[in-house]
Design a protein around this nucleic acid. Structure first.
Lengths: 135, 135
DNA sequence: CTAAAACCTCACATCAATGTGAGAGGCAAG
DNA sequence: CTTGCCTCTCACATTGATGTGAGGTTTTAG
């Protein structure tokens, strides 16, 4: 398929798909006229890439794990595997950062609610029922 | 305290502290000569800010929640509270992205290991004991 | 064969948190 | 008062994923 269709099927802009190719995240063959051709595999691959990017992986990191994706041969395999593991650690640590930040937010919300509860009634005189959501 | 000490005590560079101030994330008074003076409160505050930034919050978002931090008065309080809640949602959704990405990595690692297991022995002839870490 | 639709490359723009350096002034101790 | 350290403002650089537009070629439908 050509780049437009891949774009439609993955939701990634054409510009982005070219960028991914340039960075070695996806492969393509070229037609005589120089246009990119992609195989079906490109679709799940782009999805994988986008998922990782959304998770804060750098395109370089993703490129380094790709040998693991398409070449289960000796070369690069071990280092790709290691890159994969490193990224996994990074993600786990990012999750912990997020959990800590969320806890900090919760703490702030709690004390803020308490402060307000101690304050004189607000002008509208409506009850102090601030929403409390926990996910 | 002056900016250098705050920097030492929080680990944030002097340049960054000025940036935080410019963006309304921390407050300061100025000496006659124009130098910034901070109170003790600035220390935990900077830590809070950094935690949120590390969690991907935008400085604008943090600025918008600050009224909640120091002015438990009517003005801005509700909107700050709402900003807080929005940010909490964003964080939770980011965590989910990370979890999905981690799952994708795990899946890739698994299939890669299987591929390799089906392959002829590698040149070094060593056993195929690839590390399997789960956090 | 022609026109429209899709594609190509090149290159500059953006956003946000930071770094860095220049040039100048503030402040405390000898 | 002077030296040395700290601070000030201004302003430009960087990184990475993306957007955008110009100008030109390929492909495809009619």
């Amino acid at each position: 398929m050509r780049i437009g269709e891949l774009s439609r099927r993955t939701g990634a802009s054409v510009r982005l798909l070219r960028y991914y190719e340039e960075k070695g995240l996806i492969g393509s063959t070229r037609s005589a006229g120089g246009q990119r051709h992609f195989t079906e595999d490109a679709v799940p691959r782009v999805e994988f890439v986008r998922r990782l990017l959304a998770a804060g992986a750098t395109s370089r990191a993703i490129a380094e794990m790709m040998p693991c994706f398409d070449t289960p041969l000796e070369e690069n395999f071990d280092s790709a595997m290691e890159r994969l593991a490193r990224e996994r650690l990074r993600i786990t640590s990012d999750i912990e950062d997020l959990l800590r930040a969320r806890k900090a937010l919760d703490a702030l919300m709690d004390t803020a609610r308490e402060h307000r509860a101690r304050l004189p009634r607000n002008q509208a005189g409506r009850p102090l029922d601030l929403p409390v959501h926990r996910t």
